[in-house]
Simulated assay, not measured.
Amino acid sequence: MSEFANITIVKKANVYFDGGVSSRTLRFPDGSVKTLGFMLPGEYTFSTQDPELMEIIDGELEVLLPESEQWLKVQGGESFNVAGNAKFTMKVIKPSDYCCSFLK
């Protein structure tokens, strides 16, 4: 899906890692939440509350998922899931555009 309809966008940006990662929150009528964001090259560790689906729209990165010792290469058009209450690390190789869906 290349666009979303009937959403509320939170105007204030979510900015992390001194601007290396930024996103905007989208709220849907059914109560679901997503963020659309952009990551500059660098290494970033995130914590989750709810499970997440990370869709990489464009770019290239490697991700180290919880309970894994292997880095997974991910590029535009690919996605990965992260468990709730977990930490994961991404090494962004090329600037990356993403959509994060918070799963409940």
Rank of each mutant, 00 (worst) to 15 (best):
D18W: 04
W71L: 09
K73H: 15
V33F: 06
A5W: 08
V82Y: 15
E69W: 11
S32I: 03
V63L: 08
V63I: 06
L72A: 03
V82A: 13
M54S: 05
N6W: 05
G37C: 12
V33S: 04
F17R: 00
E67F: 12
Q49I: 15
N6I: 03
D50S: 08
M54K: 06
F38M: 11
Q49L: 13
G37L: 10
Y44P: 02
I57P: 00
E52C: 09
A83N: 07
I7R: 00
I57C: 06
F38V: 01
F28A: 01
K11F: 06
N85P: 00
F38H: 12
T35F: 10
L53V: 08
E43T: 14
S79I: 05
M54D: 04
E52L: 11
S22Q: 07
F38N: 03
Q70E: 15
N14V: 04
N14E: 06
G19K: 02
G20N: 02
G31Q: 08
Q75E: 14
T25W: 11
F38K: 04
I9G: 05
G19W: 05
P41D: 08
T48C: 03
W71G: 00
I7Q: 00
G20C: 00
T48P: 01
G59H: 09
D50V: 01
L53N: 14
E43D: 05
F4I: 00
S79W: 14
L65G: 04
A83W: 06
G37N: 10
G20Y: 02
E60T: 01
F17G: 00
P51G: 10
F46P: 02
S79H: 15
Y16A: 03
L61K: 03
D30K: 01
V82E: 11
Q49M: 11
G84E: 08
Q75T: 09
E55M: 13
T48M: 07
K12S: 11
E60W: 09
Q49A: 09
Y16H: 09
N81D: 13
A5I: 07
Q70K: 15
S23A: 09
K73I: 06
E62Y: 15
E55G: 01
A5L: 12
F17E: 00
L61S: 02
G37E: 10
L72S: 08
Y44H: 04
F4R: 07
D58A: 12
D30W: 08
S22G: 01
E78V: 06
E43L: 05
T45V: 09
F28V: 01
G37W: 13
Q70C: 01
I9K: 14
E62F: 14
N14Q: 02
T8N: 04
M39R: 06
S22W: 07
F46M: 04
T35P: 08
Y44L: 01
T25G: 04
G84Y: 13
T45P: 02
S79Q: 15
E78C: 10
Q49R: 13
K11N: 10
T35I: 05
G31Y: 11
I57E: 07
V33P: 02
T25P: 01
S23T: 06
L64C: 05
F46E: 03
R24A: 05
L65N: 05
V10Q: 13
E62P: 03
D58Y: 09
M54P: 01
E62I: 01
L26F: 15
E69G: 07
